[in-house]
Design a protein around this nucleic acid. Sequence first.
DNA 1: TTTCGTGGTAATTGAATGATTACAAAGGGA
DNA 2: TCCCTTTGTAATCATTCAATTACCACGAAA
Lengths: 210, 210
Amino acid sequence: MSSVSETTTERIPAAERREQILAAASRVFGERGYAGATTDQIARAAGISQPYVVRMFGTKENLFLEVLDRAQIKLAVAFRAVIAEFPPVDGVPPEGVGARLGAAYVDLIEDRGILLSLMQGFISGHDPVIGPRARVGFLATYRILRDEAGFSPEYVRGFLADGMLMNTLLALQLPDAIDDDPATREILACAFQSKLDLVIDVTAAQKEDA
Amino acid sequence: MSSVSETTTERIPAAERREQILAAASRVFGERGYAGATTDQIARAAGISQPYVVRMFGTKENLFLEVLDRAQIKLAVAFRAVIAEFPPVDGVPPEGVGARLGAAYVDLIEDRGILLSLMQGFISGHDPVIGPRARVGFLATYRILRDEAGFSPEYVRGFLADGMLMNTLLALQLPDAIDDDPATREILACAFQSKLDLVIDVTAAQKEDA
DNA sequence: TTTCGTGGTAATTGAATGATTACAAAGGGA
DNA sequence: TCCCTTTGTAATCATTCAATTACCACGAAA
């Protein structure tokens, strides 16, 4: 790919353009939230004009819903890939699956915006349209871990708690401030363990082109 | 108090009115986020006109920052009260302090909006003004738990993770949907334990006057 | 009783923003 | 060549919303 945002916008099949917009929207929504993001910011990030974004998705709300759906699907796919490799035996998950699922979760930050878009959905529980979708997605994840991975509710709770802490640390943009304070590095190392370097690399790359 | 929103707005000392606005803003910001909340919604919730809100705090941003500061202070006060009662012995926290701190955390939902305003601050890490404040507040909490309560970084991490999950469940408004799906009750019971009834009561009351 | 500080609002403004409309250009058949 | 679909933009609209302005009313002090 020619990488940097196109100066001369070339004609591209709608389906492909659609994916570009969804990727851009995922990043922008993930960073600024549903209310805080503008369709124009998303359009610029995708290298096209604002009206085209609106025409392709109808409304900003629809666009966010599709971003949310995609993120939930990618999360489910990632988890199910791990579970397929290490399925529960007699309903009990094999040793080490929790760590592998956690690693798969962190790896999702490479597909930029997914985790933060999910998080932005979670804190939109008040919204009459987005709220129900976010709840359904959250419960779907809960069920995958409980029913398909074979974890106990208590274990799933702990797993989700760890995930929510990681989401929060990313949303806070603490990785960018890792050198500001020793405590920052300490908690990040504690939360991300061996994945800390990956997290730092990805968040630094994201800050660069912002 | 005459409870329900005043029809005839009576003259009240500015300091007192200020507290009313902060309380209202805490609720509205907690529910809709910084970008999603409007000064008019806050004004209505406080029973006054929109210009008065702006004049008292200068800008919406200032108002949010003060809400955030207050929330962080109240959290610190609540934690320090528990720690003062059960201080670490030789740098090691006594048995059961973690549970008591967790209980103190959940109790904060009675002061409506605190937990969700904190959460809304956390996901505003990208904001050049709000972001730094949110990071400082988060780190301050981390240090209280590590240095004043005497917990290890690992334990603090787990404690914060539990808190973030609770924040997320509240923001998702899952307690309002507890009867929609057995899995909802299961995870809520798992996350809030003996405090589940309190959570349900408070969130139901909040839904009522919304 | 005038005056001044305090506590408030109505009306308005200006900018931001989601959405719409009208138009243009590329390109592939017939 | 002509036309029609697809891909795109420029211009504009309508609304929302934070912020400003100009004003009002009460009450205490002089």
